[in-house]
Design a protein around this nucleic acid. Sequence first.
DNA 1: GCCAGAGTACTCGGATAATCCATGTCCGAGTGCGTACGG
DNA 2: CCGTACGCACTCGGACATGGATTATCCGAGTACTCTGGC
Lengths: 144, 144
Amino acid sequence: MRHSSRVAVAVHVLTLLAASGEELVPSDAIAGSVNTNAAVIRRLLQALTRSGLVRTQLGPGGGATLAVPAHQITLRDVYDAVEPGALFRMPTAPPNPLCPIGRHVQPALERHLHRASDALARELSRSTIADLAVDVRAAARHAA
Amino acid sequence: MRHSSRVAVAVHVLTLLAASGEELVPSDAIAGSVNTNAAVIRRLLQALTRSGLVRTQLGPGGGATLAVPAHQITLRDVYDAVEPGALFRMPTAPPNPLCPIGRHVQPALERHLHRASDALARELSRSTIADLAVDVRAAARHAA
DNA sequence: GCCAGAGTACTCGGATAATCCATGTCCGAGTGCGTACGG
DNA sequence: CCGTACGCACTCGGACATGGATTATCCGAGTACTCTGGC
């Protein structure tokens, strides 16, 4: 599976948008906080927009903002938005149909892996962006 | 995250070895069943050997075999063996230390993601290669 | 007939090239505001 | 003084290089079997 930091960056972006309230935040400003390129942010925002989590506004004073309240956005929503496709994937080349094992392993394996993916998704569903924002505020207060 | 089919291939290989009992299976034969290159199989076998799941034997009549009983190999063991590193990763570039959110998002996020990864690992621990082998035999009998 | 030795065939292990995906950079399309001009 | 039209600055969206990682191919190292020659 691709070990990527897309989920981490996306959560960072959404938490930032949640802290910004109603005002629109341009991708350049977000990129400054995340310390990456603005194009990366825009690509993530595109994925989040397709999933209906954020809205973007063109022109001066434009930018991105949450499309739904932060407490309604779970980490699972973020994961599904920015990590398309299943966690586990079957090989591209089909197994040898002559091999009795190759014929039957994949369906059985898919059942087991599907259960595991469901467990991951359930746990991700228990955390929301609002929870993260609370944690961040608490950490900031503690550090001050 | 890396969406790869290594786990699927590794499970296929281990199930094949479990069905082969004590006899050594060369990587070419395994590659024929999985329908991929023998080098891919050998690399997977190296990872599985490092984790102590299989043993390999050099020379004629050589090959690979399970180093521990199939019912002691969980899918989590396989996952850990062939997918090193954490499921979720923080971005390589550190966030802007001037941004109050960037400073505190990552630790909080890591806690939430760690819980989710644990849930995944727990569910993977519930399935073993022996379970898969049983499923495969049942499917083969049903198809016959 | 039995034993020792070399030869051979087969396997894994690592090094090397090709391909694919993700990331970083750039330019065009679209929008809202400000300004200037005419009525 | 008010309305309208133009121009400009700013933003997103997509297209194009670049780097790294993963995958596929090839060759060398090592081992067990076998055959042959000698005793």
